[in-house]
Design a protein around this nucleic acid. Structure first.
Lengths: 200, 200
DNA sequence: CGATGTTTCGTCACTATTGACGAAACGTGA
DNA sequence: TCACGTTTCGTCAATAGTGACGAAACATCG
């Protein structure tokens, strides 16, 4: 379904769909735009639309994948003797937040969007984040893997991830919702688990 | 949409749908059964089906809600001076696993079911579990709430939950998949976080 | 029992998503 | 440039899930 771009042709189609979607979304809002309209604007069939994007909402989070890749790389580039918590904090801080993109999304009338969709997507992101972190842990601690410490590694990856997303949730409900504030909350949240996973 | 039962009539309809679904699911498998068939068997329209269940798969996890309620109650009934980790462990241990139900589900050809559905549902369950735990923490520690320790409470609830589900994941990949083994893993997983959240 | 307010249903119409299959567009070597 | 294998599309046909609106079924009060 959500097949990754193979040829130049499909890349063109994807670009056309993306552009058409952006225009429509901005003009009439996400929920008020049908997949059919987007496809028509891009000059392809509805079926073709679904060959490039798993769902209408996938277009909204289209660049998410690159964000995850970025995170994986950032983790991989951390010094070998640094513990997980410090690495995660550093990776989060270095994340290249695109303010323009954020502003753009805000204009997309996301508020008029089915909240459950957003929530589902966030859960997916969290899950992917946890997997990335688990991979990182496994690579950094082959000894633990050898020893069969699956449970410890999994708990570490998942609970650290949980802390990061807990910070995000608190931030969403906070009065001051600035990037520095989010960073502060993330740092504080992960710091709580530092003593427990200091050894990783 | 997924409106909770209001009158006796709707309760009858729900029961009919449930029964029809069970029969079909058992006979031909979940994915091979259409919502329309279920509705027809129950003597109602497709639209009515969706008035009682948000989705076809909701029928599969129909009794899940009661499980969550049970968990909330179990937490509430723990002694006031017990810390969260201990309470969670106790609640999990006391859970009335219904072996028959598990067996039944196994027969439902769940394997032939879209895995992403199961995964999504598990994530939903995890989220609800975390909320229940957060509620519990707030009730048990009004002082922390007063103090504005939102972050600490949220991180605690979420990471403890993460540990429980991490145990579940490890269990799923383990060679011996028995209930006692799951209990052991859960206990061990949550124990890792005990020092961090001992104060709750 | 009959009038009335509330719930539950059925009907209609529409968007979202996906499988199957054949036609058109591309890229490549002869 | 032409034939051939591959990828991308279009067409057809289903199922899933929802909003709107009016009719039927129920529960209540007089």
């Amino acid at each position: 379904m959500a097949s990754p771009p193979q040829t130049a042709r499909s890349e063109r189609t994807r670009a056309a769909l993306r552009k058409a979607a952006t225009v429509r979304f901005l003009a009439q809002g996400v929920e008020a735009t049908s997949a059919e309209e987007i496809a028509a604007d891009a000059g392809v069939t509805l079926r073709t639309f679904y060959r490039h994007f798993a769902s209408k909402h996938d277009l909204l989070f289209a660049d998410y994948d690159s964000g995850l890749q970025w995170f994986r790389k950032a983790l991989a580039e951390r010094p070998a003797d640094e513990n997980v918590i410090a690495s995660v904090q550093a990776a989060i801080f270095a994340f290249p937040y695109d303010v323009d993109a954020v502003t753009q999304i805000a204009n997309l009338r996301v508020d008029a969007l089915d909240p459950s969709r957003i929530v589902q997507h966030m859960r997916q992101v969290q899950s992917d984040f946890a997997h990335a972190l688990l991979d990182h842990l496994r690579r950094r601690h082959p000894d633990a893997v050898e020893r069969g410490d699956e449970l410890d590694l999994t708990v570490a990856a998942r609970s650290i991830t949980a802390a990061v997303f807990a910070a995000m949730e608190v931030w969403l409900h906070a009065p001051v919702r600035s990037l520095p504030e989010l960073a502060r909350l993330s740092r504080e949240a992960t710091a709580l688990l530092e003593p427990t996973f200091r050894h990783y």
